[in-house]
């Protein structure tokens, strides 16, 4: 058998060693990781139903998980690591509540497989301000009341953090009048609205969200 091939039978031993069923966080200590002798990157071949060792780097911390390939990045965060700040709103890429940063780019974690994101730098809302104080975008959301129920908020905030970086890199949006222009693109309210439109807010806090992003953009430049 291919050493890199994981089968449904073969995973039983791993499961036992890792000391948990598929429900919990498996472990994240380097020693256990080494003892498990798992490869640093994805197994080249995992048979259906088998668990594969999956190492995710989230908010600067390594998590060694044992997952089926079909586990999404969103479910890996929420169900297997226990980082529930990232929300599941539609699970189909239609609401943006699951927005996280992967290598500083915003993506929908519901449409990503965890196993395909090994080696990536993943940042969630919990990792924006690790030392207690709020990130500038978080503070602006509080001050401008850019949320009500709070469920879309982690996604909005992650999206805004990435969006401000995108705008600094002079990326275009559908609100950009002339895509051929060179140089900075002014972050008008119309640009902010368009660039934040991948995050639905059913409470309708859009006025506050735009104000918060505008504030954060001004403060961080």
């Amino acid at each position: 058998m291919d050493a890199n091939r994981l089968t449904a039978e073969g995973h039983a031993r791993r499961r036992f060693l890792l000391g948990t069923a598929s429900l919990g966080v498996v472990a994240h200590t380097p020693s256990l990781f080494a003892a498990e002798d798992a490869p640093l990157v994805a197994s080249a071949h995992v048979e259906r139903g088998a668990l594969a060792p999956v190492r995710l780097q989230v908010n600067g911390r390594d998590y060694m998980l044992s997952l089926e390939p079909r586990v999404t990045l969103l479910d890996a965060l929420r169900e297997y690591i226990g980082l529930t700040g990232t929300k599941k709103g539609c699970d189909r890429g239609q609401c943006g509540a699951c927005t996280v940063l992967v290598n500083d780019r915003r993506i929908n974690a519901c449409l990503a497989l965890a196993i395909a994101h090994q080696g990536d730098r993943i940042r969630t809302v919990e990792g924006l301000a690790p030392h207690g104080a709020l990130h500038a975008v978080q503070a602006a959301f509080v001050e401008r009341d850019g949320f009500q129920c709070g469920y879309c908020t982690p996604g909005q905030i992650c999206s805004a953090v990435a969006m401000l970086q995108e705008a600094r890199s002079d990326t275009i949006s559908a609100a950009t009048q002339d895509v051929r222009q060179r140089g900075p693109i002014a972050l008008t309210d119309a640009e902010i609205r368009e660039r934040m439109s991948g995050n639905l807010c059913r409470c309708g806090a859009y006025v506050g969200i735009v104000a918060a992003v505008r504030d954060a953009a001004t403060r961080s430049t």
Partner: peptide, 21 residues
């Protein structure tokens, strides 16, 4: 007043029903 639950909601600390385990 700013929402008293604002810091929890903006940092992912607010716990919704599906997040009890």
């Amino acid at each position: 007043l700013d929402r008293t639950d604002g810091p929890l909601k903006t940092t992912g600390g607010a716990r919704y029903a599906a997040e009890f385990r």
